[in-house]
Amino acid sequence: MDLHALRSFQAVAEGATVTDAAAEARITQPALSRALKRLEDEVGAELFHRVGRILRLTPAGRVFKEYVDAVLDSYDRGCRAVAEVVDPEGGVVSLAFLHTLGTWLVPRLVTGFREAFPQTRFELHQADENGLAQRLLDSTADVIITSRDPGHPLITWRRLLVESLWLAVPVRHRLAQRQRVRLAEAAEEQFIVLKPGYGLRSVTETLCRQAGFSPLVGFEGEEVETLRGLVAAGLGVSLIPVSREASTAPDMNPDLPIRYLQVTDVQAARDIGIAWLASRTLPPAPQRFVDHARSVTADATAAPAPRG
């Protein structure tokens, strides 16, 4: 059985057109169509049916794909294991992480790791909380860095650090001259939040409920920097992560006139952790990265109040 044909089958089964899959495989579309037909002959069943211009899996195709995924994953891991035997200081770390951690924590961890293991390559992916867990389950990532325990029986999660959350308000806001605030005092404010599925969104909703109200959502974004910008524009308030490891105090940026207030009536913080599949032995390079991440963040805590 041709591994290239299996990869093309997998690509088409996951939604790629035959044209795109053929381009990825660097063969012609008719050649790919013939390869898929040979695969069906070998399996002894029709694997696809056509819906307009799209190929959809048949029931037999859905069953077959589960085994194809397992075969290709096992083959790829075998190749990686051999490569790491040949070059034990190298290897590949496939790492997925929250968007909000791409500005400070992930660069810090990757930079420190590569100083010790400069030959290691990284494959980096960003996703929301649900997408991160799925990347582990799909074996498209070795390790994820996320803001909460996925709570899945097949996933092992370990806390790395605790990140403080501060109430960000515009500089001309009625609370802007304060240093501390009860979150309940913002119950009537418009909240600028991330979209559902992002960890910071669920943490914000949980903290507001603990403070006795449901947040009035004024805007849903996909990046924390967008939240900061809209707060600075006076469109609402937001719970923003501020960590000791951040490169600069965000409220010192003259382009973002924001004040950050310490929240006193609820424990405004979120866990940041690292996770991997419990049922799978990590290859050497990802295991070294997990050990590195846990070591350099040991006893890390949230930042003191931002300056400004």
Score class of each variant (00 low, 15 high):
Leu3Ile: 15
Gln10Cys: 06
Ala11Lys: 00
Ala11Arg: 01
Ala11Ile: 01
Glu14Val: 03
Val18Glu: 01
Glu24Ser: 01
Gln29Ile: 04
Ser33Lys: 08
Arg34Cys: 07
Ala35Thr: 01
Leu39Asn: 02
Leu39Phe: 09
Asp41Cys: 08
Asp41Gly: 11
Ala45Asp: 11
His49Ile: 05
Arg53Met: 10
Leu55Thr: 02
Thr58Asn: 03
Glu66Arg: 12
Arg77Ala: 11
Arg80Cys: 12
Val82Thr: 13
Ala83Ser: 15
Val85Trp: 14
Val86Arg: 11
Val86Leu: 14
Gly91Phe: 12
Val92Lys: 10
Val93Lys: 05
His99Ser: 12
Thr100Cys: 11
Arg108Cys: 12
Arg108Leu: 15
Glu115Ala: 14
Pro118His: 07
Thr120Met: 08
Leu124Phe: 06
Ala127Arg: 05
Ala127Asp: 15
Glu129Trp: 13
Asn130Gly: 09
Gly131Val: 07
Leu132His: 01
Ala133Phe: 06
Thr140His: 02
Asp142Gln: 04
Arg148Gln: 15
Pro150Asp: 11
His152Gly: 09
His152Glu: 13
Leu154Gln: 15
Trp157Pro: 06
Ser164Gln: 10
Val171Lys: 01
Arg172Ile: 06
Arg174Phe: 08
Leu175Ile: 02
Arg178Val: 00
Val181Asn: 01
Ala186Arg: 02
Ala186Phe: 02
Ala186Gly: 02
Phe191His: 02
Gly197Ser: 10
Gly199Glu: 07
Ser202Thr: 13
Gly218Ala: 09
Leu227Cys: 14
Gly229Glu: 10
Gly229Val: 07
Gly229Thr: 13
Val231Lys: 02
Val231His: 03
Ile240His: 03
Thr248Lys: 10
Ala249His: 09
Pro254Asn: 12
Pro254Ala: 08
Arg259Tyr: 03
Val266Gln: 07
Val266Lys: 05
Gln267Phe: 13
Ile274Gly: 10
Ala275Pro: 05
Trp276Arg: 11
Leu277Tyr: 07
Arg288Gln: 06
Phe289Ile: 12
Ala293Met: 08
Arg307Phe: 01
